[in-house]
Design a protein around this nucleic acid. Structure first.
Lengths: 218, 218
DNA sequence: TCCCTATCGATATTTTTTTATCGATATAAT
DNA sequence: ATTATATCGATAAAAAAATATCGATAGGGA
């Protein structure tokens, strides 16, 4: 049954769910109507039992023995679980190359994320428009955030502005920060943080590469 | 003792290690010489026992009772564990906004990652230079990768080019792909993949935000 | 129609990860 | 010099996560 309210679901499940979704969309494109946990597990390289348990958090209707799950309905369930249907407004602070890339990324619509505006201190970008979203001076951040009751902030500033801008976001009423800077932010418990940690990713990739090359040399 | 060779260390450790490193660098900047597992755990919001166990994978010298670990030597150990000292060359495919941001990002030096060149099919970027790295046509990718024996490819293309370009990378001899596209890549087992999954990150951030707001409303 | 089989969903088992405990010891205080 | 204490490092215990098992059942084929 679907997880209504606040039953605990582990972060690992949240990490795998979008992977299942990508697989389901690919299977749908291939014209498939049903998929079993075995097929899906094979596709995403997980264990079928794990897939069944994970999907049980999202699913609203039962799967059929001998056939598996209805792909269309499963896609809806997973998208719903991930919150892709309820739109979440966000502001972005630091409109450099990365900030521009994120403002211009059309994929966020799909995830239910709507970047309302960008903020920067640089006159060269203030006033510019990326993907229909305008860049404002950081002075005006607090006003807009509180007026529109925005809860999510995306942080793409240079390192030395990360903490001050995070503080400004929090003062303005932001309660969740998606941190693309490599800075360890000091924030109150009342604010959620997700660090997009390139260092970790790269370390994991290197480790895996090392393991693959090691296995071959033996 | 430090993990030499191929003793298994879990991905969770690899995820936390860069967080410890950031904390250690911050403590060093504050003039601290030693740090205990309790202090470090408090800083990164983990359990002291976990910190001790994690650090044991990286550490080469023992910590002192009543004092803790020597910060300078611990920083070296963790950087070594993460492979920041041995330089890893990489190529980047897809020099759009995100590709340019990554090519221009100076932080990668620190992690031991050296982007040697960018590749694209668009004449508007071919020939341009970002952060001292030139952009070449994708035709020339295979030649350069095999000549320089490069093992890591960074994928920042539009969605529809992701799989073909991943295939090209693999054919050229690339053995590890850092995938910034939201595409599920079909690749042989002999190639490591790390998906930089924005969908997962955002889902986790939303979940945390929801939990925080839920907790307050009760 | 009646069996055979693939699969679900629930639960039991196993494995992995995290946390707690404890003896040894270096440092600081008395 | 002696004592008290904070910490390490090893290991035991607990918790969490992943995997395997199994009865029930829908669908396909004899």
């Amino acid at each position: 049954m679907a997880d209504s309210g606040n039953n605990f679901v582990s972060l690992a499940v949240y990490n795998r769910m979008p992977v299942y979704l990508k697989a389901l969309l690919a299977l749908k494109r291939d014209g498939k109507k049903f998929v079993s946990s075995v097929i899906l597990a094979d596709y995403v390289r997980e264990n079928p039992s794990l897939v069944k348990k994970d999907l049980s958090y999202a699913i609203t209707s039962v799967g059929k023995p001998k056939v598996g799950y209805d792909i269309d309905s499963l896609i809806l369930d997973v998208e719903n679980f991930l919150g892709y249907n309820n739109v979440k407004d966000a502001v972005l602070v630091g409109v450099g190359k990365l900030g521009q890339a994120l403002m211009g990324y059309h994929g966020f619509d799909k995830y239910g994320l709507n970047i309302v505006a960008g903020f920067d201190i640089d006159d060269n970008v203030i006033g510019k428009v990326f993907n229909g979203k305008k860049v404002f001076p950081t002075d005006s951040l607090a006003g807009l955030v509180s007026k529109l009751n925005i809860k999510i902030g995306i942080l793409t500033t240079p390192q030395d502005h990360a903490q001050p801008m995070a503080d400004l976001l929090v003062q303005s009423g932001i309660r969740a920060i998606w941190n693309f800077t490599p800075v360890h932010l000091a924030l109150p418990d009342s604010v959620a943080v997700k660090n997009e940690d390139m260092a970790s990713s790269l370390a994991i990739l290197s480790k895996q590469l090392k393991e693959i090359l090691f296995k071959e040399s033996n």
